[in-house]
Design a protein around this nucleic acid. Structure first.
Lengths: 210, 210
DNA sequence: GCCGTATGTTACTGACCGGTAACACGCACC
DNA sequence: GGTGCGTGTTACCGGTCAGTAACATACGGC
């Protein structure tokens, strides 16, 4: 069981210890896996020590939960920013989300969805991280339904589920291949084709105040 | 980092040690995760000891690779059996495969695709398991393409990619929810709808020797 | 009987794990 | 000038990890 080389990721040295620890956890847990990283390695990467880590997070499991929660918060912020950037313009929101998805799927450094990865690594049903993962995925799906509903698609739940599963599948499939030309590379084309042919109440193009 | 309770899975006591070890590895690695299970636990579950394990598999990494290879072999056998069961009848093969998918997705004990889970747990690009995972997924996709091509669908690659990603997505999404009514529960309906509306060269129904 | 091979048993290594105790330091607030 | 509070330091705990050495045993072929 080899270890990945230490990533030497620099953490903002003037931030509060708690934030440094979370930043280090996000880097290490995501890149190497949760079970593969010890708390000491995180404390070191956060330019602090194990005691300070345990004063802020009572256990490794709690730290894992906080790590995932911080990702969920960031994702929520990003989503809200996308909504605010296009008030009442659902097609533009959809376009923005597709761009975001495209970036994720084309990013070589990506290692899939951190929530899904955590779910794979932590099968215990009472792990504190499980609640956060479940809530996150439920919320993401709900947001997609609202997006498609607002954009005028019929059966937005069905469409959201399809898009959701395709996205999830692409992110996990990418981790299974060393090469770049797996089925995941065709995700965006698939999504656009799916949207094009899906029953639509209103025309796709809408002005802001229609 | 709690451990899952020992599953007490009984291994055929009269089988050869190597087979017992592989059977135990398949049970424990799959249910609890690769990094969460020690070699000693596997040896015990296999009704043998660590030394015998290390004589058959030089290291834990090699054992992991052999574990995945045995799953790949079994999957290949199942696929070949499905082909033989319906000679020259691609629609029947497709129907059989869909039934298999349905069983997997509806099985509560399921914990996703072992290959994908391993890919999540083992990010090191030179791990011996990586080659097997990559080959497995590539082969599965190729088989789907052949299946859809034989069954008369146009653009079988596109269709295979969509089906592949939906299936992968459903298996990973299932792990993210404690409840059973996630998007994964709608997979079969999605697949059937997808097949129904996909351009088709020949009618779906074919006799064996047409 | 003899021998080779596979297996079991025990004990061990050195490293790392998550987690804690005890104590020293610095610094802001009053 | 005190007084807390957050932080850093060191050392430690018991446990588990992957992996190995040395030796005993069982069994099959000849």
């Amino acid at each position: 069981m080899k270890r990945l080389p230490h990533s030497l990721h620099q953490v903002a040295p003037d931030a509060a210890p708690r934030e440094r620890i979370l930043a280090a956890a996000r880097e290490l847990f995501y890149q190497q896996g949760i079970r593969a990283v010890g708390v000491e390695a995180i404390a070191e990467a956060a330019l602090t020590n194990k005691m300070t880590l345990y004063r802020h997070f009572g256990s490794k499991d709690e730290l894992v939960a906080a790590y995932l929660q911080s990702l969920a918060d960031e994702s929520e912020e990003r989503w809200q920013a996308l909504q605010s950037a296009h008030p009442n313009d659902f097609p533009a929101r959809l376009e923005g989300w597709l761009t975001h998805v495209e970036e994720i799927v084309n990013d070589h450094g990506e290692r899939g969805c951190a929530m899904a990865n955590a779910a794979v690594e932590l099968p215990e049903s009472d792990h504190p991280a499980r609640r956060i993962i479940d809530q996150y995925k439920t919320r993401k799906r709900k947001q997609l339904v609202e997006l498609f509903d607002g954009a005028g698609y019929q059966e937005p739940e069905t469409l959201a589920d399809e898009v959701f599963l395709l996205f999830e599948g692409a992110r996990i499939a990418k981790q299974c291949h060393n090469t770049l030309d797996g089925p995941a590379s065709r995700l965006i084309k698939m999504l656009r084709a799916l949207l094009r042919q899906h029953p639509h109440r209103r025309p796709s193009k809408r002005t802001k105040h229609s």
